[in-house]
């Protein structure tokens, strides 16, 4: 089995594998999103407390989880890349970042739009909202570092180091923001008391989380293929592909 894994560590084979996987993930993400939306809008009952506004959680919670999860996956690929110097893992980390930033932005946007009806303010300095704002800054920082460095080899390693030191700090940032938040506003405003999760709501949310997850994989695979072509353009298999797509 291990030989097979290393076979796909070579960019050429991974390019083909990714090409075959993308349609699967894309389609399953589309179907799951449709199911999730149907559950969210047509099956989930109205919440007695918040009326219809709570339906935003079917978007907000998956986006928030995905932004955190993608950052951890990037940290994993960075560690693997630094340890074994496999360029492909650096490329995966680069491909994931934009999608992670999109999810971080979406979790902020939907958080604000959910906060307005619930607490009457567009922006609430709640612990999770604030730390996903900082997570968004981390994404922007890493992507700007990558774009500032022309040499791909140095860019990979520098980005990986920044991702790692960021990953060490994310839990500390979350803890310090939570500490800071409870000190100032006390626990009156508290997002942890999510509305009592009827089974349907939980199911709807989980479907949306998987939809977001498959979407993230499909998007990053498309991006990583582009990066592979860019990096391997001197090789003859890329030359064939370029002719093939004449």
């Amino acid at each position: 089995m291990s030989i097979a894994i290393f076979k796909y560590a070579a960019p050429m084979n991974f390019y083909g594998l990714a090409g075959r996987l993308i349609p699967w993930f894309a389609w399953s993400s589309g179907i799951l999103t449709a199911i999730g939306l149907y559950l969210a809008f047509f099956v989930a009952p109205t919440d007695f407390q918040q009326g219809e506004a709570y339906r935003v959680i079917f978007l907000h919670v998956p986006a928030a989880w995905m932004s955190m999860f993608i950052y951890m996956v990037m940290a994993f690929w960075s560690a693997v890349g630094l340890a074994w110097n496999t360029r492909l893992s650096f490329m995966m980390s680069r491909a994931l970042a934009p999608t992670g930033a999109v999810f971080a932005f979406l979790s902020l946007w939907t958080g604000a739009l959910w906060g307005k009806p619930m607490w009457g303010a567009w922006w609430v300095w709640d612990a999770r909202l604030t730390s996903s704002l900082i997570l968004f800054f981390l994404y922007v920082g890493i992507m700007s570092l990558w774009s500032a460095i022309d040499d791909p080899r140095r860019g990979d390693k520098a980005g990986a180091l920044l991702t790692l030191i960021g990953a060490i700090n994310v839990p500390i940032i979350y803890f310090s923001v939570k500490w800071w938040n409870t000190l100032h506003q006390g626990s009156t405003i508290n997002m942890t008391k999510a509305p009592s999760m009827a089974a349907i709501m939980l199911a709807g949310m989980l479907v949306m989380v998987f939809a977001a997850w498959f979407y993230a994989i499909a998007a990053s695979l498309v991006r990583v293929r582009g990066i592979i072509l860019e990096r391997e353009r001197q090789t003859e298999w890329v030359a064939e592909i370029l002719e093939g797509k004449a």
């Binding site: 900082i134 800054f137 981390l138 922007v140 920082g141 890493i142 700007s144 570092l145 920044l162 030191i165 960021g166 700090n169 500390i172 940032i173 803890f175 310090s176 923001v177 500490w179 800071w180």
Partner: peptide, 14 residues
Amino acid sequence: TLLILPLYVPALIF
């Protein structure tokens, strides 16, 4: 500044 300011947050808060 763009890279390191987010990492300063815990120090600023405490």
